[in-house]
Structures are given as structure tokens and as C-alpha cells.
Nucleic acid binder design. Structure first.
Length: 709
DNA sequence: AGCACGCCGACT
DNA sequence: GTCGGCGTGCTC
């Protein structure tokens, strides 16, 4: 059976021959091939389709023929079904499963030399993958060394036919520009709102004042953008925070102007809301990270709250970070950007230092009026204090607690279990770092040999870079019980616990002992906590993590921001060495200064975010294999590989973590500023190469890894 | 990933 | 000769 024969209209005799061949199993059973005779679209008969398969080596589009019957509906952006996967035989398509995809472009011709398969079906005429969304997904995929189809899957929720059939209401008219409200407490606050309302694209890093007003301020910025006739988007780290901004926005504008996009809503409601945004019926979105791709029409403001929170990174491949996505959107869609929080990341500091964003910071006086009184209890004070030793609580903290409980709720922040850091200087608590690459030192194996967690170099003569100390100590946690004991010490007040599985949204303005792990602090209903105790800070600070200082300060500031102002008797006590940088930054309430110094340090040490990094993980063979094929940029520096700790039993395994029993390795690759794109491309190409050639077990690639020790 | 291709050993 | 092992490579 020749190609020519197949393209002829088969006569009865030929059909009989084919049937005989099928019966004799010379040919597999042919599917109906009505399309071959069906006429194609007259204009632009080729559809370029993004096939929904997230394989890196398939990270390109495929051309399909557009049957005349689908001509009208097969517009760019619509969902289609196509046959994909099987090869060809005798010039005839056979088999191959139906997969979903998106029409990306209609074309006059194809550069594919073979016979195009036809689109099998247009699933819906809704053009969900708009050119803007496609461009954004492409940029995100490139940045994360991921496949376009994977990113599109994050950006567009699964279709629900019922939601699509519902009629779309008209969008409400733009609201009146809101009053500045809390923004009048910031020197450039009103100007920022005006710029948004006038359709400009201001970019700001906002240091929010302590207290409960930031959701109103965020809502006001969104409303100002709406007033200027554009759309707005705010991404928050968790559902609780999103609900607060949602409530503030409803208070400000009433219902109908915005939607809440969080994981709580079911698939149909989620798609319904997404469609309302896509169709322009709603112009403002408040949500968690799933909202970062929300197709807001003519975006005027992309806002993110507390960008240091780990929840802002999606855990689906290729794990984009909401901050990165919103930065890309602000640039691509010419929108304003608001990066707000009580704390500051080094990434935020970099945007300000480079002049890309302006600081939105209140005057020192305003701070002083809003902030609580901040006190520290160092280890030395603690050791001297015999009386409090039994409760493992220094006198100062004890006093603050007792006095606070007389006036209202008291918050006790306790590190979560499992935050056991590795090694630190016995004298000054500075985390022990590798002399070569500044990675964290850890004691590995039974011989307790000291090795770098990044590059694996053995360290035989460690001494502390800060104080010259030569003794190391393993930093241990014993904090949770302390908090439990506190409850017994105050039997007359109720004890409320808030933690990971058990988060309290609010607490009433009554005396109560509120014990919480970082990030789960209940919002006080009244003016704030009378006192906030930040316990065992050294345990957070001692974590062998690049971001330990930044992260500790972030958690402290977020908890301290819930306290009453000092004029209302609000006190915050932190038990950590007062000379440490994050402790000093807390006491001075200086998140910008901390982030700037952090940024400068990381720059000299060659750390992110100035340098960029990628992590390659997998079985040793996989990591080595990928590194062997990767044509890394010449400036790239490979650290490791080193063995990766096994996934702790009990905790669900995250993507890119070893399955139980497998011993994985990790290599870090670091490039200087500007080479991040080239690094991502090189790693993606290497991935594709290994996958097409079936070269051993798979390796995981992650750009900008968070947990780099 | 599937799935079909092709090129070598045990069987009718 | 032919069936089928799974090593290789492609998917419009």
C-alpha cells in the first residue's frame, strides 16, 4: 500500500483489499477517516496547537488542518481536541489518543512537511488562552525552565461546561476614586493612589505600618485602579489574608466589583469566577497564588502581600513564584506594581536599590506612634535568671505576659517543631558556613565529619568568621512544651492554640493566652494584643538557611504588627541575642535596612537574588547525567552534587523530593546576574535531550530554589 | 509518556 | 519462514 494509493479515493476493490489486510492482521484496524475527504477551511486552513502534555521535549506547538466545519469556532485561544502520539504507517494516521490543546494561531501554511492531521473537535468557542496570557505563560516557562503547557495548566482552570453557559453580566461602572484613608499616613501614599487612578504604572515596595489597617490600604489601592478604568489584582499568601482584603474591598465598594479566587471554592465556582474575569464582567481579583495568572482585562495594578511567605510559590511544576509572575505581568502588561508587607525580602530591596520600584515608607514618627514597645532578652539575661529557669522563661518575658494578661489577649509565638538547625558557633550563634562557597556546614554520617551542604567539601579546621570561636554546637529545639507550661502557669486565663492544622482566624479582645506557630497568629478583634512574646528566636535564626535571618525577622514583624501601639501599652518581647542583626532590625523596626544589608551580603557572597541559582535533584546517576549533557553558560559554577536528606516519613512528599528509600543528590548551579535566562534554557535543553534519548532516570530542575541551605 | 518501528533468537 | 523480544525514535 503506497502513499499514492492511500491518497486516492479507494474504490470498492481497494476497500476489499484493505479489509482483507486488516483481517490478516497485516494492517491494524483503521479508524474512520472521514476528515480526509472533508474540505478544509478556505482561509488559514492551518491551526498551530499547543498540546496539553507537559513534557519538556514537547515544549513546542504542532500544526493541524482545520476542517471547514470547524473554521468558525477554531479561533486562536480556544480549547480543542486533537489526535496525538502515534506514528504513521503507509501515510495513514492511525490510533493516537485524543488529547486537549489550545489553538495558538491560525496560519495560511505549515512548515511541517508531512500530512497534517485535522483538529478533531473544538471543545468550546471560548478563547481562553488570549495572546497576553500566552505571552505571560511563555515568559514564566522560560524563567522557570519549564514547559509552556505546564504553565498554561496553572493559568487556566479546567473547563466546566455549565459555568460557560451561564450569561455574563455587564461590568459595573468604575467606582469613584476612594479617599486615601490609611495611605495618608505614608508620604507618597496619596500620590501613589493618584497615579493608579490616572492610568499610570507606578511601582512601589510598601512597608506597611504595624496594626490591622493594611487590608484597607490594599483595598484602597485596588479601588483607585478601578476608578481609573483599569483592572487590578492582589495575591495574598493564604485564604485568611485574602478574606480580609475581600472584606475590606466589599466594605469600600460594595459587592460586584471584585471576586475572591482561592483554593476553597470548588472547581465549578472557580471556573465561573475565572470566566467572569476573562470576559471582563469583573475587573478586580483578590486571591491566593492561584490568582496570579487571573486574566484581568487591562491590568492596572498587580499587588502582592508579604512576598517572603513560602506559600507564594506554587507547588506544581515548574513552581513559579507569585512575585516573579506579577513582576513579569507588570512589565508585559504595563501595569503598576505594589509589593507590600511588614517585612522586606532581599528581592524587594533589589527592586528599590535598582530604581525599578519606589519605596512607600512612612516617616519614623508615624512608625513610632503605631509600633509597640520592643524588648529583647538575650541568652545572658536568661542564664542569670534562676527564678524563671523552671518555666524556661526570662523575668522580662514573664512580666510582660502577666501584665499583658491583665489588659487583653497575649500572643506567644513558638517555632514549629522540626525547625532543628544544624550547626552554629557555640559562642556567637553564627551559623557555620563553608570557607569555599559559603554553604551551610553539616555533620554528615557516623564519623560526624564536617561537610558543606552545598559543595560537599570537608571542613577540618572550622572557625567562626564572626567571633573566631572554634567550638560548634548543634542547635536544638525544645520550645513547644514551654508554651504548654505557660498555660499551667496561668490557670485563670483561657489558652487558645493556633497552628498548622488548627488555625484560629480571630480572638476576642479579652484576656487570653494565644499560643501560635509563625504564620498562624489569630488576628485580634480589638486594638491588638496587649503583649507579644517571640520565643526561642535563636532556633529560627540558627537554621542553616540562606534566608534564616530574613525569614525570622519576617515572622517576628508579622506577629509584632498584631500588638497594640506602645501608647496603648503594647509590648513585644523577643528572646534572642540582642546583638544579632535580625533582632536589632526588629527592635528598630527597620525591615528596609535589614533587607538592604542582606542584599549587599548576598551580593558579595554570590547568592540569590543577585546571582541566580538552579537546583538539580534526583538519583546520583540522573544528576550526573543531566550535568554531563547540559551546555551551561561559561560563567556557570556547579556546586556539588551532595547527598540529599531523605524525605521525612509522615510528611507528604513534595514535587522534586525523593520517594522513601531512595538516596538522592542535589547539585546547585550558580550564574552571575544576567545569565539566569541562559542557565534556564541550558537546563531545559539538557532535560529534553535526556528525555528523548531515554538517558537514565529523570532529574528534577528547579530555578531559584528556596531551600538552598 | 505511549506507540510503532526495526532488527535478532525460538518456534511451527 | 514467522512470531515477538524490547532497544530507538517520533509525536503535526
Amino acid at each position: 500500500m503506497s502513499e499514492a494509493g492511500a491518497s486516492e479515493r479507494p474504490g470498492g476493490e481497494q476497500l476489499a483489499l484493505i479489509r482483507a489486510a486488516v483481517r490478516e492482521r497485516k494492517l491494524p484496524k483503521a479508524r474512520p477517516r472521514t476528515w480526509r475527504d472533508a474540505p478544509l477551511a478556505e482561509r488559514l486552513p492551518v491551526a498551530r496547537v499547543l498540546v496539553d502534555k507537559g513534557l519538556v521535549h514537547l515544549d513546542r506547538c504542532f500544526d493541524y488542518a482545520v476542517p471547514a466545519g470547524l473554521d468558525a469556532e477554531a479561533q486562536p485561544g480556544v480549547r480543542v481536541r486533537v489526535r496525538f502520539g502515534a506514528g504513521q504507517r503507509d501515510g495513514r494516521r492511525e490510533g493516537g489518543g485524543l488529547v486537549n490543546g489550545y489553538v495558538v494561531e491560525r496560519r495560511a501554511d505549515s512548515d511541517f512537511t508531512g500530512v497534517l492531521a485535522p483538529l478533531a473537535q473544538v471543545l468550546s468557542p471560548e478563547p481562553v488562552l488570549t495572546p497576553e496570557l500566552l505571552a505571560l505563560c511563555r515568559a514564566v516557562a522560560d524563567r522557570c525552565a519549564g514547559a509552556l503547557a505546564d504553565v498554561v495548566r496553572l493559568a487556566i482552570p479546567p473547563r466546566m461546561a455549565k459555568a460557560e453557559r451561564a450569561p455574563t453580566p455587564e461590568p459595573p461602572p468604575p467606582p469613584e476614586p476612594p479617599a486615601p484613608g490609611g495611605w495618608s499616613r505614608y508620604p507618597h501614599g496619596a500620590a501613589f493612589l493618584t497615579a493608579l487612578a490616572k492610568g499610570r504604572a507606578p511601582r512601589a515596595v510598601w512597608t506597611a505600618l504595624p496594626g490591622p489597617r493594611w487590608p484597607d490600604e490594599l483595598a484602597t489601592a485596588l479601588a483607585a485602579t478601578l476608578a481609573g478604568g483599569r483592572g487590578a489584582l492582589a495575591v495574598l499568601p493564604d485564604g485568611r489574608a485574602a478574606a480580609r482584603v475581600d472584606a475590606a474591598l466589599t466594605e469600600l465598594l460594595g459587592p460586584g466589583h471584585h471576586v475572591l479566587l482561592t483554593a476553597d471554592s470548588g472547581p465549578e465556582q472557580r471556573y465561573r469566577r475565572w470566566l467572569a474575569i476573562h470576559r471582563g464582567a469583573v475587573r478586580c481579583v483578590v486571591g491566593t497564588r492561584a490568582a496570579m495568572f487571573a486574566p484581568v482585562r487591562s491590568l492596572g495594578l498587580a499587588a502582592i502581600w508579604d512576598d517572603g511567605d513560602a506559600a507564594h510559590r506554587d507547588d506544581h511544576a515548574p513552581q513559579p513564584h507569585a512575585r516573579d509572575v506579577l513582576l513579569l505581568r507588570a512589565t508585559q502588561e504595563n501595569a503598576g506594581l505594589l509589593l507590600g508587607g511588614h517585612a522586606h525580602t532581599a528581592e524587594a530591596a533589589r527592586l528599590v536599590r535598582g530604581g525599578w520600584a519606589r519605596p512607600l515608607v512612612p516617616e519614623r514618627e508615624t512608625f513610632r506612634a503605631a509600633a509597640p514597645l520592643l524588648r529583647t532578652v538575650g541568652d545572658h539575661d536568661q542564664a542569670r535568671d534562676e527564678a524563671a529557669r523552671s518555666a524556661r522563661l526570662p523575668t522580662l518575658a514573664w512580666q510582660a505576659l502577666r501584665e499583658g494578661l491583665a489588659r487583653g489577649p497575649v500572643l506567644v509565638q513558638v517555632p514549629r517543631r522540626g525547625y532543628a538547625p544544624r550547626l552554629a558557633c557555640d559562642r556567637c550563634r553564627e551559623p557555620a558556613r563553608c570557607a569555599g562557597c559559603h554553604g551551610p556546614l553539616a555533620s554528615v554520617g557516623a564519623d560526624e565529619e564536617l561537610r558543606c551542604g552545598w559543595c560537599g567539601t570537608a571542613e577540618r579546621s572550622w572557625h567562626c568568621g564572626e567571633c573566631g570561636g572554634r567550638r560548634l554546637r548543634a542547635v536544638v529545639i525544645g520550645a513547644r512544651r514551654t508554651a504548654e507550661e505557660l498555660g499551667r502557669a496561668f490557670p485563670s486565663v483561657p489558652v487558645r492554640a493556633s497552628g498548622r492544622d488548627h488555625v484560629l482566624a480571630t480572638v476576642p479582645d479579652q484576656p487570653a493566652l494565644v499560643v501560635s506557630t509563625p504564620g498562624a497568629e489569630p488576628v485580634p478583634e480589638g486594638p491588638g494584643y496587649a503583649a507579644v512574646l517571640l520565643l526561642d528566636g535563636w532556633a529560627l535564626l540558627g537554621r542553616p538557611d540562606l534566608r534564616a535571618g530574613e525569614e525570622t525577622l519576617r515572622r517576628w514583624l508579622n506577629a509584632a504588627a498584631l500588638a497594640r501601639g506602645r501608647h496603648d501599652g503594647g509590648v513585644v518581647v523577643v528572646t534572642a541575642e540582642p546583638t544579632l542583626r535580625p533582632v536589632q532590625s526588629l527592635v528598630r523596626w527597620d525591615p528596609e535596612g535589614h533587607a538592604l544589608r542582606e542584599l549587599a551580603d548576598r551580593e558579595t557572597l554570590g547568592f540569590p537574588p543577585v546571582s541566580r541559582m538552579a537546583a538539580v535533584t534526583g538519583l546520583p546517576e540522573a544528576v550526573a547525567g543531566l550535568l554531563a549533557v547540559a551546555e551551561l553558560p561559561p560563567s556557570a559554577e556547579v556546586l556539588g552534587p551532595v547527598p540529599l536528606p531523605e524525605t521525612p516519613a509522615g510528611r507528604p512528599r513534595r514535587t522534586g523530593e525523593p520517594p522513601p528509600g531512595e538516596q538522592w543528590e542535589r547539585a546547585l548551579i550558580r550564574v552571575p546576574p544576567g545569565a539566569g535566562g541562559a542557565l534556564a534554557l541550558a537546563l531545559k535543553t539538557a532535560q529534553a535531550h535526556r528525555l528523548t534519548h531515554r538517558e537514565g532516570p529523570p532529574a528534577w530542575v528547579r530555578m531559584d530554589p528556596d531551600d538552598i541551605g
